[in-house]
Amino acid sequence: MILETLEEVDATLFAARTGWAATAQGMCRGEVCVPAPGALRADGSLDVRVAADRLGMPIVHDEAHRLWAVGPATATGRAISTVVAADPELLARDGGPFRLSSLHGRKVLLVAWSSY
């Protein structure tokens, strides 16, 4: 996730991009919750440093462009922390957005390929 600041990050945006939602139980994705006291501020914003630390998400900084990138969670040591499928916004052939959740109720064989 690309960030222009580590302060007062919108928790909703963080959840939409990473799948990890800030809740009273901690940082949660699917059935998995990782305690993260202090991650969710009273104003509803997220302290990304706390959340990232608890989830094992490295933060990479590009000083020249004043950007940060947060890597995916490493809390389980595997690429998948929960079997609840992620739902990123992908690009359809017509240029519009497409989410896998629009196929809920049907089996999905998601095949990755490339032109290279």
């Binding site: 799948g19 995916p72 690429a79 609840v84 992620a86 809920h104 095949v111």
Partner: peptide, 27 residues
């Protein structure tokens, strides 16, 4: 679909192509 940022690597664990994941009716 097209993943212009390779975010599916991150979210599903793709590391090469072709690779696939199976997702059931409940997601």
């Amino acid at each position: 679909l097209i993943d212009t940022t390779h975010v599916t690597d991150e979210l599903f664990g793709f590391v090469n192509i072709p690779m696939a994941v199976w997702i059931d009716e409940q997601g």
